[in-house]
Design a protein around this nucleic acid. Structure first.
Length: 552
RNA sequence: GUCCCUGUAGCUCAACGGAUAGAGCGACUGCCUUCUAAGCAGUAGGUUCCGAGUUCGAGUCUCGGCAGGGACGCCA
């Protein structure tokens, strides 16, 4: 990327300026290039001179001049200017810019990819909802976040595996089994039954029981324990299948579904307990096994194994994460959790440190709560009664693309209102369609070009001189930068905003510059630009898991 | 009480410590004999919750308030 080239050259120039005694030998800050808002300030701007001013005890303007005076020429850079108080503004050359159109066409669908991740083996775990009920909107947010990050991290050179962790062991499973068995007795066997007090009371449990009606004769011949286990196994499978289907509606798929139960079956759990015990991180109190995390800087200690002998969720999660790093060899792990798990973040990292795995290799993103609204009316959600609006209902109501875009465009750590009314009412003027319409217009032009049999392969891109044309090119070359920003910050909202900017600049171009005209030379050049825009626009949409429609 | 997230235009939200804080929706004014008007151009709309501090420079960092949400269990 030219951005990297410029940074490297500026670094060399700064070092050289120091060697020549133009500026004092102080530590050089990382050189950061930004895109100035004001086009008069060039295409890139460096602020290094201002940052050096204090340590160097020099006027930033003088520092900037010193650096630029020894800066060697850079291919693609036309002009380097120093402006008060000490900005180094960089203007790209017209020739280099237009050449990028050919470059994009050469790279095709690869354009925008980078080697940033250097093949780092990375696991992204998200959703991981307990399979005891259907997904709701909040889960949709996490799943869109996760799948989009996975796409972008793959494009930026990480070797990514997407995983869903199935909590198929422990308390909530017992509860689920007991609830299902009770519902089955009532709904299928017509017998009295008592739901567990903290059971799952949603209507879906009754539906689930009725779906298993074909098991009736088998169940009747079984003991209660056998029946519970049998129904539970089938019910769990059905729940998982439903979750999988709902996620697929949103365009979310996993590479691996990992069962919690296997941690116990494989001895993984025993292993981490032994490891922690051996380093004196475990103490027994009142019959329970405690992780002495206060000694590692945590606010409190946490139970790993209850006095009943049943391990806690936390303990299983430690074993699970140990498995990710130590057994499966991931270099880096990213988890996406709901904000209600925030209290778990710090102790999880601490546990990793205790096992000799740096918690720094574990990133935990929290996706904040989503509340549903219908205009002024707040859509009430009650977990206890199971009275929830499911993710599937929302997708069916507003569409998967709208759903994905709305979730993506908001930073994960902001709570959001999802207004169903707005998502639908706006549907014709909404940013989602604005972006997709940009792609459809592009496709329309290319379609016409094909119908007319226009060969633009020899188009001369240097004929692209209109500001509207150059604006698009400048945005196209920012695509890879945007993907890297997302990969570094793990904040995918930059991509939908980029896509909107690109759509704006294309719509503007469309209005000002007719592509297919009598002028064959210009037509060919512009078709190249349109085709390059199509690659990038389609890729941006696909990375977000959205459709890039040919027509609308 | 402690900890985490948030507070930016009427609404929903952006903005690696940089130059004149931006989009979409909503409001108002223009633009369709042309490759799609699901578009374009323009106008109005801001004490970035409040107060201190750090610095050449703060919506962004620090501290203290205020407001909303969340977490503080041998639940997950």
């Amino acid at each position: 990327m030219i951005r990297d080239t410029i940074v490297k050259n500026l670094e060399q120039a700064a070092a050289q300026a120091q060697q020549q005694g133009l500026i004092p030998q102080v530590d050089l800050p990382d050189i950061v290039l930004e895109h100035p808002q004001n086009p008069e300030h060039g295409d890139y701007a460096a602020t290094v001179a201002m940052k050096l001013a204090k340590a160097a005890r020099m006027n930033p303007f003088t520092i900037a001049e010193a650096i630029t005076s020894v800066l060697s020429p850079i291919d693609g850079v036309e002009k380097v200017e120093v402006l008060r108080p000490g900005f180094i503004n960089i203007v790209l050359s017209h020739d280099w810019l237009t050449r990028q159109v050919d470059e994009i066409l050469n790279q095709g669908i690869q354009y925008g990819n980078s080697a940033l991740g250097q093949g780092t083996k990375l696991q992204l775990e998200f959703v991981s909802v307990n399979p005891t009920g259907p997904l709701h909107v909040g889960h949709g947010r996490g799943s869109v976040l996760g799948s989009t990050l996975a796409n972008i991290l793959s494009a930026t050179g990480y070797s990514v595996e997407k995983e869903y962790y199935i909590n198929d062991a422990g308390n909530q499973m017992d509860n689920f089994f007991a609830s299902l068995y009770a519902r089955y007795r009532e709904a299928v066997l017509g017998l009295p039954a008592e739901m567990p007090p903290d059971g799952y009371f949603g209507q879906y449990m009754i539906d689930l029981a009725q779906d298993l009606e074909s098991e009736k004769s088998k169940i009747e011949s079984m003991s209660e324990e056998e029946a519970k286990a049998h129904l539970g196994k089938l019910g769990l499978e059905k729940m998982l299948r439903q979750i999988d289907e709902d996620l697929k509606l949103l365009g979310v798929e996993f590479d691996n579904w990992f069962s919690e139960q296997t941690l116990y079956d494989s001895g993984q759990f025993e292993k981490i307990m032994a490891l922690l015990g051996q380093d004196n991180h475990i103490e027994e109190r009142e019959g329970a096994q405690w992780f002495v995390s206060t000694e590692l800087g945590e606010d409190k200690d946490n139970v790993l194994v209850r006095s009943s002998g049943v391990p806690t969720y936390f303990a299983a999660d430690i074993a699970y994460h140990y498995n990710k790093f130590a057994e499966r060899g991931f270099d880096r792990v990213i988890d996406i959790w709901g904000a209600d798990h925030q209290g778990h973040v710090s102790r999880m990292k601490t546990a990793m440190d205790a096992l000799g795995i740096s918690g720094n290799n574990l990133d935990i993103l929290l996706s904040q709560m989503v509340s549903l609204r219908r205009g002024e009316e707040v859509v009430k959600v009650s977990k206890r009664t199971g009275d929830i609006v499911t993710l599937r209902e929302v997708i069916e109501e507003v569409g998967a693309d709208v759903c994905r875009f709305f979730f993506l465009a908001r930073s994960a750590n902001s709570q959001m209102d999802f207004d169903l009314e707005l998502a639908k009412k706006q549907s014709l003027d909404n940013p989602v369609y604005y972006v997709q319409y940009g792609h459809a217009r592009i496709a329309g032009i290319m379609r016409l070009a094909r119908e007319k049999g226009i060969d633009y392969s020899n188009g001369n891109v240097s004929l692209l001189t209109e500001p509207a044309e150059l604006d698009i090119i400048k945005l196209l070359i920012q695509f890879a930068e945007t993907l890297e920003i997302v990969a570094k910050t793990l904040e995918p909202q930059h991509l939908p905003y980029y896509a909107q900017d690109l759509a704006t600049s294309f719509h503007n171009f469309y209005e000002k510059c007719r592509v297919i005209t009598e002028d064959e030379q210009l037509t060919a050049a512009r078709l190249k630009l349109v085709e390059a825009s199509r690659f990038v626009m389609a890729k941006a949409l696909h990375l977000m898991g959205m459709n890039a429609p040919e027509r609308m």
